[in-house]
Computed example of a mutant assay.
Amino acid sequence: MEKSLGYQTTVDFYDCDDTIIDSVTTIENILVKAAEIMNLSIVNTTIHEFSPIGISGVIVIKESHIAIHTWPEHKYVALDFFTCNKSFDLDEGITWIQNQFKSKRIEKNSSQRGFLDTIQQ
């Protein structure tokens, strides 16, 4: 695998409990606990509730960020993790989040960003 500056993991959660994914307090609590499970260091949290429904938020972590967008009307959540190295095992935290959202299905994708051989030094 080529050396890069960042590693992005996106997770789509389908068939979630719509009341859970439309609560700012619940979303924040779930993401904070997930960050702890994954040994990520939280710097700041911003979660916004839209009217009439839906939530977007970012948790800034020392390792980069966690971002979330919810569509309760579709029982869907888009979540992404960006970290500065591959030493973090996100799987346990992602499974925990899936259980909290009561999601029946997820799709996970990972990619690298900021390839060092293309960055001018």
Results as ranks from 00 to 15, higher is better:
Lys3Cys: 10
Ile20Cys: 07
Ile20Ser: 07
Asp22Pro: 00
Val32Pro: 00
Met38Gly: 02
Asp17Ala: 09
Gly57Arg: 04
Val43Thr: 14
Ile55Val: 06
Ala34Ile: 12
Glu49Lys: 15
Val11Phe: 03
Ser51Gly: 03
Ile61Asn: 09
Thr25Val: 13
Ser111Asn: 11
Leu116Ile: 12
Asp22Trp: 00
Glu92Lys: 15
Pro52Thr: 12
Thr95Lys: 14
Asp117Ile: 10
Thr26Phe: 10
Asn29Trp: 01
Lys86Arg: 05
Lys33Tyr: 06
Leu116Gly: 00
Ala34Cys: 14
Asp15His: 13
Val11Glu: 00
Gln121Ala: 06
Val24Tyr: 06
Gly57Gln: 05
Asn29Glu: 04
Ala35Val: 08
Thr46Cys: 06
Asn109His: 10
His48Arg: 10
Ser110Met: 06
Lys102Leu: 13
His69Gln: 11
Trp96Arg: 06
Ser103Tyr: 04
Phe50Met: 15
Glu36Tyr: 11
Lys75Asn: 10
Arg113Tyr: 01
Lys104Asp: 10
Gln98Arg: 15
Ile59Asp: 08
Ser23Gly: 04
Lys75Tyr: 09
Gly57Val: 06
Gly93Lys: 01
Ile42Gln: 10
Ile55Met: 03
Val43Met: 12
Asp117Cys: 05
Tyr76Ser: 04
Gln120Met: 11
Tyr76His: 13
Gly54Lys: 04
Ala34Pro: 06
Leu79His: 07
Val43Ser: 14
Asp89Gly: 01
Leu79Ser: 10
Glu107Ala: 02
Gln112Asp: 02
Thr26His: 05
